[in-house]
């Protein structure tokens, strides 16, 4: 990639990540479950520790992104358009993309191993382990996406470009159906992720998102205060400063 290619041609990259590259530990899960460092019940701690031991060898962390040439990107007040496909991302998200020079789609996944572990616990009536495995999986995929964001930022740093926060279909009013359009602009089976008819990503613990790229962009957090989804995962993470 060079400075002109950032804005003038499609750039696609795909990675397999090492678990040890992801900043992630047991304490964050403890906090996400609602506990402080001192009052964690033994079975909860034991479950977290056991699942963390399982993680390094059993998760398959992958991520990738595609940066679109700026000439193929049009930005509106409540939607944006790429290669003649219209994305109805609503105004919360588009307001955060208004100063960008171009747009990238990113996807990240942890594979289906941890999801299967959670299901296996559940089917054996080990609800606590199943719940904690699911919670860890949800957080791990967020952290994998965080790491991918850093990769994107690092790849364009040298040219003076910055990225916005990532914004995903299904949040901030953006209909998750648009995920079909996102994946239609990515290589088939990108990072091993497929979509169901209902726009559900498989493996389930996967993230897709849009990020804006520009020299003047400002990185802002999700504005949970103006969204009406009270029990959203983003809101939970924001409230716990995770």
């Amino acid at each position: 990639m060079n400075e002109t290619s950032v804005l003038n041609q499609s750039v696609i990259e795909e990675f397999t990540f090492d678990y040890n590259d992801i900043v992630f530990n047991e304490i964050e899960i403890i906090h996400l479950l609602g506990y402080d460092d001192e009052n964690v019940p033994d079975p909860v701690l034991e479950s977290i520790n056991n699942i963390f031991k399982y993680l390094p060898d059993k998760v398959n962390l992958r991520g990738g992104f595609k940066i679109f040439p700026s000439r193929k990107v049009k930005l509106g007040k409540e939607k944006f358009e790429i290669e003649n496909k219209i994305f109805n991302s609503e105004k919360i998200i588009t307001s955060h993309l208004k100063d960008v020079d171009t747009i990238a789609f990113m996807v990240a996944t942890i594979g289906d191993e941890l999801e299967n572990l959670s299901k296996s616990f559940m089917s054996n009536n080990e609800m606590l382990n199943g719940y904690i495995a699911d919670k860890i999986a949800s957080e791990l995929v967020e952290r994998t996406a965080d790491f991918l964001e850093t990769k994107i930022q690092n790849s364009i740093n040298q040219f003076g470009y910055k990225i916005t926060n990532r914004y995903s279909p299904g949040y901030c009013g953006w209909n998750v159906k648009d995920q079909h359009k996102i994946f239609s602009l990515l290589p088939k089976n990108f990072c091993g992720i497929t979509l169901t008819e209902g726009a559900l990503m498989v493996p389930i613990k996967s993230i897709s998102a849009v990020v804006g790229i520009g020299k003047e962009v400002e990185r802002k957090d999700y504005e949970c205060s103006i969204c009406d989804i009270e029990f959203c995962y983003k809101r939970e993470r924001n409230a716990k400063n995770i």
Binding site: L33, G34, P41, P43, V44, N125, M127, L128, Y131, I132
Partner: peptide, 14 residues
Amino acid sequence: IFLPEVLIAAKAMS
């Protein structure tokens, strides 16, 4: 208490 403790109790109940 939080949901994990509800599940711990529910397991004993079960």
